[in-house]
Design a binder for these strands. Sequence first.
DNA 1: ATTCTCCTGTTACAATCGTTTCAGAATCCG
DNA 2: CGGATTCTGAAACGATTGTAACAGGAGAAT
Lengths: 288, 288
Amino acid sequence: MPLTAPMDEELRLALPDLTRAERQLASHILTHYPVAALGSITALARAGGVSSPTVVRLVQKLGYKGYSDFQRALRAQVEAMLVSPLVKQAHSGAAPEGHVLTRFAGAVAENLQATLAQIDPTEFDAAAALLADPTRRIFAMGGRITHAIADYFVTLMKVIRPEVLLMSDMSNAWPPALLDMKPGDVLLVFDIRRYENAVLQVAEVARERGAEIVLITDRWVSPAAAHARHVLPCHIEAPSAWDSNATLLVLVETLLAAVQGLTWEVTEPRMKRLEDLYTRTRLFRRYR
Amino acid sequence: MPLTAPMDEELRLALPDLTRAERQLASHILTHYPVAALGSITALARAGGVSSPTVVRLVQKLGYKGYSDFQRALRAQVEAMLVSPLVKQAHSGAAPEGHVLTRFAGAVAENLQATLAQIDPTEFDAAAALLADPTRRIFAMGGRITHAIADYFVTLMKVIRPEVLLMSDMSNAWPPALLDMKPGDVLLVFDIRRYENAVLQVAEVARERGAEIVLITDRWVSPAAAHARHVLPCHIEAPSAWDSNATLLVLVETLLAAVQGLTWEVTEPRMKRLEDLYTRTRLFRRYR
DNA sequence: ATTCTCCTGTTACAATCGTTTCAGAATCCG
DNA sequence: CGGATTCTGAAACGATTGTAACAGGAGAAT
């Protein structure tokens, strides 16, 4: 019987119980949801790179009598989607109350909120403006663990604007980078609890060389704050042996969004060109 | 050839030139637009109270070669109708009002909740168990952007257990790593939208070499799912030009917490020793 | 009223559909 | 490694589809 539960959810939930070919098909349907399954079973099978019996088996696993039944249900859902484009998420939670998943996500949500309540929007905007200034070059560095966050920042920032550099995690690469810094350049520093000496020292030297420092740290604030122009403290508590850096990542992404907003007229054509290059090198998947 | 002009408009425009039965049918299609015409010609004819040849004649008057042709065009249009509100929803967010900070954090919180509601705890636990198994070696790889997340995972996982390897972002380092893989090894793959061919291929080869693959992807599910043993889909929508990887990071941290929980008796002394080493090398700050 | 013209639905038919069967392939497990 | 089990696509099937041909029927003009 046709269920009215969102079918994409249903598919994703069933994913673990599927076989290779079925999963490949489900993945195809999800990436082209829902139009992929609006045509004939043959067309869907070919598009998904499987045989039509596989399609039937998949939809039967989902609880439908056959492809026709499945399609009827899908159409009803498409209708609902078209009538109210608002996708309601009133889906009952799947994770048990005490599961790690629940506890962790809860902690992160709390951190987010607490961080938000405590960050000064003026500071944030000023930092974003610094990072958006095309006359300044951007450097980023992190500690042992936050290095990955710095890496993430640089990867995306390089899409937005030129002159962005990640200070490697190998400390013998730092002196040359520091030497290269000019007054007015910006150094984005990540430093959280178990603050690292090396990070502090780099910040100090950078400041001496005239760089503006933006510091993303935890709520106990790294000593590197002494050299920083703008400080953005985050809540990082987590139910585990380590802290959670999710809040840092969110802050970074928000900074990126803000910078992108400030430099859109420059960034947009830049992204277009980049996308073109990626397409040409066939790095991304091509659909036949 | 399928036109992309709005079909309901087209129908209304043609209305005056139609005959009685045709008009009755057109009216039915319009009042039940567009779902009415998504099924078979027979169903549509019956629902409209006319015969199937009438349907054919109507769509031919509209300029289509036949019912199939007409339906193909309609599907394309439904897709357009469906995609734009979804995209718009993702980009307009809940509150167009407010600071970027608020909007972004809100979006991330929603993603977290949605992800949580949809991830199968069994899958998660199984994945964690795989990663905790000391007899297996762990490999991790990500795409252009998710590479940083993979890096983060590896950095922390190396603290928990030995035999953890990050597959570099330089693709010429992959073949040796793949060659090194043994049956039973685990490959943690990150692949989100704009799925990358390279990632897919590595996953495929790894599977052939007998590795177990854990895939962390977005809710449209990377095609690499076909080769994966466990799939963990995340919500990643954000009010910006890119997606947010915060949910991925949270999932990774939760996985780490789970693994750490499973291997605590091994991990604890390991962490102690590591801490000792870091102290001795004076990498961390010393308070006077 | 008759004829003519244009609609309209019934019928017939090939094409395609969705489904079932089954044998080989892949995978798991001891 | 080999046997058992599961998965998968080729083939075959009836059912249904979309279309073409055809004949009856409604209405207009004469």
